[in-house]
Amino acid sequence: MRKPAEPAVAKEAAVAAVEEPRRRDFIHIATVSFAGVGTAAAAVPMLTQMSASADVRALASIEVDVSAIEPGQAIKTMWRKQPVFVSRLTPEKIAEAKKDDNAPMRDPQTLEERTLPNREEWLVMLAVCTHLGCVPTGAAQGEPKGDFDGYFCPCHGSHYDVAGRIRKGPAPTNLVVPEELSFVSDTVIKIG
Protein backbone atom coordinates (compact mmCIF):
# COMPACT_ATOMS: atom_id res chain seq x y z
CA MET A 1 0.00 0.00 0.00
CA ARG A 2 1.36 3.41 -0.99
CA LYS A 3 1.58 6.18 1.48
CA PRO A 4 -0.29 9.41 0.79
CA ALA A 5 1.75 12.06 -1.02
CA GLU A 6 1.35 14.83 1.54
CA PRO A 7 3.84 13.70 4.19
CA ALA A 8 6.63 13.47 1.58
CA VAL A 9 5.96 17.00 0.37
CA ALA A 10 5.89 18.22 3.90
CA LYS A 11 9.19 16.54 4.62
CA GLU A 12 10.81 18.17 1.58
CA ALA A 13 9.55 21.54 2.71
CA ALA A 14 10.95 20.86 6.13
CA VAL A 15 14.37 20.04 4.66
CA ALA A 16 14.32 23.23 2.62
CA ALA A 17 13.52 25.19 5.72
CA VAL A 18 16.70 24.03 7.48
CA GLU A 19 19.10 26.91 7.84
CA GLU A 20 22.14 27.23 5.55
CA PRO A 21 24.78 25.86 5.69
CA ARG A 22 23.39 22.39 5.88
CA ARG A 23 25.26 19.44 7.40
CA ARG A 24 25.70 18.09 3.88
CA ASP A 25 27.39 21.35 2.72
CA PHE A 26 29.82 20.98 5.56
CA ILE A 27 30.58 17.39 4.56
CA HIS A 28 31.11 18.43 0.94
CA ILE A 29 33.47 21.26 1.80
CA ALA A 30 35.37 19.17 4.32
CA THR A 31 35.78 16.31 1.84
CA VAL A 32 36.95 18.52 -1.01
CA SER A 33 39.32 20.43 1.30
CA PHE A 34 40.79 17.21 2.63
CA ALA A 35 41.32 15.89 -0.89
CA GLY A 36 42.75 19.26 -2.00
CA VAL A 37 45.24 19.48 0.85
CA GLY A 38 46.19 15.85 0.28
CA THR A 39 46.78 16.42 -3.41
CA ALA A 40 48.84 19.55 -2.72
CA ALA A 41 50.94 17.61 -0.20
CA ALA A 42 51.46 14.82 -2.71
CA ALA A 43 52.53 17.39 -5.33
CA VAL A 44 55.42 18.60 -3.14
CA PRO A 45 57.67 15.55 -3.68
CA MET A 46 56.65 15.50 -7.35
CA LEU A 47 58.01 19.05 -7.68
CA THR A 48 61.05 18.89 -5.38
CA GLN A 49 62.38 15.74 -7.09
CA MET A 50 63.25 18.07 -9.96
CA SER A 51 65.66 20.21 -7.87
CA ALA A 52 69.38 19.49 -7.61
CA SER A 53 69.90 16.11 -5.94
CA ALA A 54 72.16 15.55 -2.91
CA ASP A 55 75.12 14.34 -4.99
CA VAL A 56 74.94 17.43 -7.19
CA ARG A 57 74.77 19.70 -4.16
CA ALA A 58 77.71 17.84 -2.56
CA LEU A 59 80.09 19.03 -5.30
CA ALA A 60 79.87 22.50 -3.89
CA SER A 61 83.54 23.11 -2.97
CA ILE A 62 86.84 22.84 -4.87
CA GLU A 63 90.48 23.79 -4.38
CA VAL A 64 92.58 25.04 -7.29
CA ASP A 65 96.38 25.07 -7.40
CA VAL A 66 97.31 28.30 -9.15
CA SER A 67 101.09 28.16 -8.75
CA ALA A 68 101.66 27.50 -12.46
CA ILE A 69 99.69 30.50 -13.70
CA GLU A 70 101.97 33.30 -14.90
CA PRO A 71 100.83 36.94 -14.98
CA GLY A 72 98.69 37.44 -18.10
CA GLN A 73 97.56 33.83 -18.12
CA ALA A 74 94.25 32.29 -17.18
CA ILE A 75 92.90 28.78 -16.63
CA LYS A 76 89.45 27.29 -16.84
CA THR A 77 88.30 24.94 -14.12
CA MET A 78 84.97 23.48 -13.02
CA TRP A 79 82.94 24.32 -9.96
CA ARG A 80 79.44 22.91 -9.47
CA LYS A 81 79.62 21.67 -13.07
CA GLN A 82 80.07 25.27 -14.20
CA PRO A 83 83.23 26.57 -15.83
CA VAL A 84 85.32 29.09 -13.85
CA PHE A 85 88.03 31.46 -15.07
CA VAL A 86 91.01 31.88 -12.77
CA SER A 87 93.15 34.62 -14.27
CA ARG A 88 96.26 36.40 -13.08
CA LEU A 89 96.29 39.99 -14.27
CA THR A 90 99.45 41.80 -15.34
CA PRO A 91 100.12 45.24 -13.77
CA GLU A 92 99.06 46.83 -17.08
CA LYS A 93 95.72 45.01 -17.02
CA ILE A 94 95.18 46.04 -13.40
CA ALA A 95 95.82 49.65 -14.37
CA GLU A 96 93.47 49.31 -17.34
CA ALA A 97 90.72 47.87 -15.14
CA LYS A 98 91.18 50.58 -12.49
CA LYS A 99 91.11 53.33 -15.11
CA ASP A 100 87.59 52.19 -16.01
CA ASP A 101 86.39 51.87 -12.41
CA ASN A 102 84.25 54.98 -12.74
CA ALA A 103 83.21 54.58 -16.38
CA PRO A 104 79.47 54.35 -17.06
CA MET A 105 78.46 50.72 -16.62
CA ARG A 106 75.31 48.67 -16.40
CA ASP A 107 76.48 46.99 -13.21
CA PRO A 108 79.07 49.39 -11.70
CA GLN A 109 81.81 47.69 -9.69
CA THR A 110 85.47 48.48 -9.08
CA LEU A 111 88.26 45.99 -9.55
CA GLU A 112 88.81 46.12 -5.80
CA GLU A 113 85.24 44.94 -5.22
CA ARG A 114 85.77 42.04 -7.60
CA THR A 115 89.00 40.73 -6.07
CA LEU A 116 90.18 39.74 -2.59
CA PRO A 117 92.08 42.32 -0.48
CA ASN A 118 95.79 42.47 -1.47
CA ARG A 119 95.20 39.82 -4.11
CA GLU A 120 93.93 42.06 -6.87
CA GLU A 121 96.02 40.29 -9.51
CA TRP A 122 93.80 37.22 -9.01
CA LEU A 123 90.46 37.48 -10.75
CA VAL A 124 88.19 34.47 -10.23
CA MET A 125 84.86 34.50 -12.06
CA LEU A 126 82.23 32.05 -13.24
CA ALA A 127 82.85 31.63 -16.97
CA VAL A 128 79.12 31.80 -17.51
CA CYS A 129 77.71 34.72 -19.44
CA THR A 130 75.06 36.32 -17.26
CA HIS A 131 72.79 36.60 -20.27
CA LEU A 132 71.98 33.01 -21.19
CA GLY A 133 74.91 31.03 -19.88
CA CYS A 134 77.40 30.54 -22.72
CA VAL A 135 81.13 30.50 -21.96
CA PRO A 136 82.65 33.83 -23.02
CA THR A 137 85.88 33.78 -25.02
CA GLY A 138 88.99 35.79 -24.14
CA ALA A 139 90.60 33.76 -21.35
CA ALA A 140 92.91 31.77 -23.66
CA GLN A 141 95.51 33.21 -26.01
CA GLY A 142 94.16 34.33 -29.36
CA GLU A 143 90.46 34.16 -28.48
CA PRO A 144 88.27 37.17 -29.31
CA LYS A 145 88.31 39.59 -26.38
CA GLY A 146 85.47 41.88 -27.48
CA ASP A 147 85.44 45.67 -27.73
CA PHE A 148 86.76 46.18 -24.17
CA ASP A 149 89.82 43.92 -24.27
CA GLY A 150 88.28 41.45 -21.86
CA TYR A 151 85.76 38.78 -22.73
CA PHE A 152 83.25 38.29 -25.50
CA CYS A 153 80.21 36.02 -25.50
CA PRO A 154 79.76 34.54 -28.98
CA CYS A 155 76.15 33.56 -28.44
CA HIS A 156 74.44 36.93 -28.24
CA GLY A 157 77.27 39.44 -28.41
CA SER A 158 77.94 40.58 -24.82
CA HIS A 159 81.23 42.43 -24.30
CA TYR A 160 82.98 42.32 -20.92
CA ASP A 161 86.05 44.33 -19.93
CA VAL A 162 89.34 43.18 -18.38
CA ALA A 163 87.68 42.81 -14.99
CA GLY A 164 84.71 40.85 -16.41
CA ARG A 165 82.32 43.79 -16.13
CA ILE A 166 79.50 44.03 -18.65
CA ARG A 167 80.06 46.99 -20.97
CA LYS A 168 77.97 46.26 -24.06
CA GLY A 169 75.36 43.75 -25.19
CA PRO A 170 72.37 42.02 -23.61
CA ALA A 171 73.89 40.54 -20.42
CA PRO A 172 72.35 42.14 -17.32
CA THR A 173 75.23 41.83 -14.81
CA ASN A 174 78.99 41.39 -14.56
CA LEU A 175 80.51 37.92 -14.73
CA VAL A 176 79.84 36.46 -11.29
CA VAL A 177 82.66 36.40 -8.75
CA PRO A 178 81.87 33.49 -6.39
CA GLU A 179 81.08 34.79 -2.94
CA GLU A 180 82.62 31.74 -1.27
CA LEU A 181 86.18 32.51 -2.42
CA SER A 182 89.34 32.33 -0.30
CA PHE A 183 93.08 31.63 -0.42
CA VAL A 184 94.06 28.46 1.42
CA SER A 185 97.73 29.35 0.84
CA ASP A 186 99.56 31.67 -1.55
CA THR A 187 99.15 29.19 -4.37
CA VAL A 188 95.83 27.47 -3.60
CA ILE A 189 92.43 29.03 -4.08
CA LYS A 190 89.30 27.55 -2.54
CA ILE A 191 85.93 28.11 -4.21
CA GLY A 192 82.77 27.18 -2.33
Binding site: S51, A52, R80, V128
Partner: peptide, 13 residues
Protein backbone atom coordinates in the same frame (compact mmCIF):
# COMPACT_ATOMS: atom_id res chain seq x y z
CA UNK B 1 66.28 27.49 -13.84
CA UNK B 2 68.10 25.23 -11.38
CA UNK B 3 64.85 23.41 -10.74
CA UNK B 4 64.35 22.84 -14.47
CA UNK B 5 67.94 21.63 -14.89
CA UNK B 6 68.15 19.66 -11.67
CA UNK B 7 71.52 21.28 -10.95
CA UNK B 8 73.62 24.33 -11.62
CA UNK B 9 74.29 23.46 -15.25
CA UNK B 10 72.90 20.92 -17.75
CA UNK B 11 73.91 17.45 -16.58
CA UNK B 12 72.60 13.93 -16.07
CA UNK B 13 69.43 15.04 -14.30
Amino acid sequence: RQWLLGGFAPDQA
